[in-house]
């Protein structure tokens, strides 16, 4: 797996997450206002050059976007057929530029910094009774249990293969999901026994 975050530092790593997000928003707005085909193409090539220079030596991460290529070609063809080449190239260029810029932000910002940058966005949720503690608990739970679920599923698949020699069928998913719901009850119990819900009722 290619991790979206680039561990090797670039100059862009030192720029604050909030600034990068703001720049991304402004540039994306700029691109939607740019209608001239040639201008768009130049801007996109500039973005591509900027991208390649900034993450010099880590171009393999572009492979993450490989599944998009046939899709972009399909969209381009459909549009060229319906409204002409120029429009087709313009809309593809717009997409590629924005994907690359957004990817740069992700490549150079660690997840925790990004979460911090999002905190002001999450704060209004307090009004409907969701506080940051609950959000950070939920995030931690996802990161903690994703590999647990994957491992559990792999074990079930292996047991199935051992008995039948075939790939696991969808049928196996039903008891697995029922078990996840029961696992959730156990985990909630463990959280409560350490005072999670009582803490909230005191607030």
């Amino acid at each position: 797996m290619i991790a979206p975050y680039l561990t090797q530092k670039t100059w862009l790593h030192r720029v604050g997450a909030g600034h990068k997000l703001l720049a991304l928003a402004v540039i994306s707005l700029g691109f939607t206002q740019l209608y001239d085909g040639r201008g768009l193409l130049v801007a996109t090539l500039a973005v591509l050059a900027f991208y390649l220079v900034t993450i010099f030596g880590h171009w393999s991460r572009l492979r993450l976007y490989a599944p998009l290529v046939p899709l972009l070609i399909g969209i381009g063809a459909l549009q060229a057929y319906a409204s002409g080449w120029e429009l087709a190239i313009a809309s593809i260029a717009r997409l590629v530029a924005m994907i690359l810029l957004a990817d740069l932000v992700t490549a150079t910002t660690p997840m925790l910094k990004m979460m911090d940058a999002l905190a002001p966005v999450l704060r209004p949720l307090r009004r409907i009774g969701v506080d940051e503690n609950q959000v950070s608990l939920a995030v931690a739970l996802v990161i903690r249990f994703m590999p647990v679920l994957l491992n559990e599923w792999t074990k079930r698949g292996e047991a199935w293969r051992a008995r039948t020699g075939r790939r696991p069928p969808l049928r196996l998913l039903a008891p697995f999901v029922a078990d996840i719901l029961r696992l959730a009850d156990h985990v909630a119990e463990a959280l409560d026994s350490r005072g999670f819900s009582t803490k909230r009722s005191k607030d």
């Binding site: 739970l141 156990h186 985990v187 119990e189 409560d192 026994s193 005072g195 009582t198 009722s201």
Partner: peptide, 23 residues
């Protein structure tokens, strides 16, 4: 006084996989 209990009473469950909730 249910709210004060977690500070006084620790509970270890059968399956550590259920109890560990953080990465």
């Amino acid at each position: 006084q249910r709210a004060s209990l977690p500070g006084k009473v620790g509970f270890i469950f059968q399956n550590p996989e259920h109890q560990i909730v953080f990465p």
